[in-house]
Amino acid sequence: MSWLALTEYLANGFVMGMLYVLMALGLSLIFGMIGVINFCHGILFTLGAYATVSLKNSLGFGPALVISPMLVGALGMLIEVGFLRRLYRADPSAGLLLTFGLAMVLEQLVRIIWGTSGLPYNIPEALTGALPLGAFVYPKYRHFILLCAIAIIAGLWLFLEKTPYGMIIRAGSRDGEMVRILGINLRPIFTFVFGLGSALAAIAGVLMAPVAGVQPAMGTDVGTAAFVVVTIGGLGSFWGVVIAGLLVGEVVSLSILFWPPIAQASMYILMAVVLLTRPRGLLGERWEKFE
C-alpha cells in the first residue's frame, strides 16, 4: 500500500466526513435549541437534492445550488411555525413522533411529485474530470464539495461565535429561560434555527445530488449517519460535531480499505467505543437540560 493510495482513501473519507458534518451540525443546532430529535433531517437532505434538480434547467447549476437550500430552509421554518411550535409544552416524544411522521409524508410527496424512480442529474461540465495535484489525481467535483463545505462550516462558526444573533442562539440553547428573562423573545429564534438546520441538511443534499442517485430514499442512510455523528461529537459542541463527522468519514473509508466486512458497522463500533469512554461524546459538555 503506497502513501499515495492511502492519501486517496483519506481524501474520500474527508469529503464524505464533511457532508456528515453539514448534516450533523443542523441536527445538533436543532436539538440543542429546541430539544427536538429531528427525524425529518434525512428527507430535508433529499428535498435539497430534488429542489436543485428542478431548478437547474431554468436557473443553471450555480443559482440552483444557492436557492435550493434557502427554499428548504423556508420549508423548515413553516414546519416549525405550523406544527412543531404547538408541541413544545407537550411530552418531548411528541416532537419526535411528529417529525418521524412528517418524514414519511414528505418522502411520499417526493414520490408523488417527482416519481418513484429518481431523476438523472450529473456533474456540470465545468466540474467533470479530475484535478491533478502532483501525483494525487482526484475528481474535480470532490474538491468542489470540500471547498463548499469548508466555507459553510467556517461561515456558520463565525456566525455563531462572532455575531449577536449567534450569541443568542448559543445562550438560548444553554438556558432558554434566562435568555427570555433578559428580554429576548425566543420564538422567532426557534423558527430561524429550525430553518437554518433544515438548510444545512439541504446543502448536503444539493452537493451530493450529482454524485449519488437523486431518489426518494437517498436521505435515509445519511440521516442515520448524522445521528451517529452528533452522538459521537457530543451535544452542544460545534467542534465536537466537526471532529466526529470527519472521524466517521475516515473510519468508514479506511475500513473499506483494510477490512471491508466491517465497513457498514464501523461507525457504530466507533460510537460504542466513544460512549463507553466518554458518555457525553468527544467534546460534549454537561448541559443541565439534557441530564
Binding site: G35, V36, I37, Y88, R89, D91, P92, S93, G95, L96, L97, G176, E177, R180, K289, F290, E291
Partner: peptide, 14 residues
C-alpha cells in the same frame, strides 16, 4: 416555564 427535553429514557418510552 422550562420545556422538557428528550432524555434517553424518554426515547425508550417512545
Amino acid at each position: 416555564e422550562k420545556r422538557v427535553s428528550v432524555s434517553r429514557r424518554g426515547f425508550l418510552k417512545t
